[in-house]
């Protein structure tokens, strides 16, 4: 229940209507969106029960490892109602054509593989919010100071998922496990996304805001 309440509102991309469509415009829009959404996600993390009790250093380490997984999982959940399209924001939906134009076809297809997986499973909002918190708590940072505290956070979230499934899907005893087993694909997809945006950063043709840059650099 706390995670449902903490879930941020939808976000808007607001692409500049005066700029003609191009790869640079699409990537600029996405990088700006990502930067704003990261601010929102850091606020969200503080509402995960147990997260604020971690040391500031460990909170930072988890976010530095898990931020792209959180961004992608949110895009995936928003896209569950559509066919072969990614809802990056309420007003920014990318289809295959736009993905090609932005040079994001491979990455977006990888994200669509996740969408397909969760569609087949019928992922619910309750499951999505817990899974997202688990992705953060389980982001496998190498810099954790108090790994027992992080383990306790993982256990609480894992317990919440199991409890939810026991109450709502008693006919499928393995559903919590099935959901957890989707996380490797999320990790893999996030790593591709980070790699892709790191090379865009090195090209230097797309303006990026400071928080997005800071977190990309944490991954470099």
């Amino acid at each position: 229940s706390l995670l449902l309440v903490a879930e941020p509102e939808g976000i808007f991309a607001m692409p500049d209507p005066t700029v003609p469509e191009s790869d640079i415009k699409a990537l600029t829009t996405l990088c700006d969106l990502a930067d704003r959404e990261l601010v929102v996600n850091i606020g969200w993390a503080k509402h995960i029960p147990g997260f604020p009790s971690l040391s500031l250093a460990d909170q930072m380490s988890l976010l530095q490892s898990g931020w792209m997984e959180i961004l992608i999982l949110r895009v995936v959940f928003r896209s569950l109602g559509l066919e072969d399209k990614l809802v990056y924001a309420e007003d920014y939906v990318m289809d295959e054509e736009q993905s090609k134009l932005a040079g994001l076809l491979d990455l977006n297809n990888a994200i669509l593989q996740l969408v397909k997986k969760y569609k087949t499973m019928g992922l619910e909002k309750e499951e999505f919010v817990v899974l997202k918190a688990i992705a953060l708590a389980n982001s496998d940072s190498m810099q954790i100071e108090d790994s027992e505290a992080v383990q306790r956070l993982q256990d609480v979230l894992h317990g919440a998922l199991q409890e939810y499934e026991a109450a709502h899907r008693p006919e499928d005893a393995r559903r919590a496990g099935k959901l957890i087993m989707t996380l490797p694909l999320l990790r893999q997809t996030a790593a591709r996304a980070v790699q892709h945006f790191c090379s865009i950063k090195q090209d230097g043709r797309v303006p990026m805001h400071k928080l997005f840059l800071e977190l990309l650099e944490a991954k470099a």
């Binding site: 503080k46 500031l56 930072m60 977190l215 650099e217």
Partner: peptide, 15 residues
């Protein structure tokens, strides 16, 4: 950690 100033600030701000 010095390098991650914005993240640090955002986490320290209340709410």
């Amino acid at each position: 950690k010095e390098k991650h100033k914005i993240l640090h600030q955002l986490l320290q701000n209340s709410t």
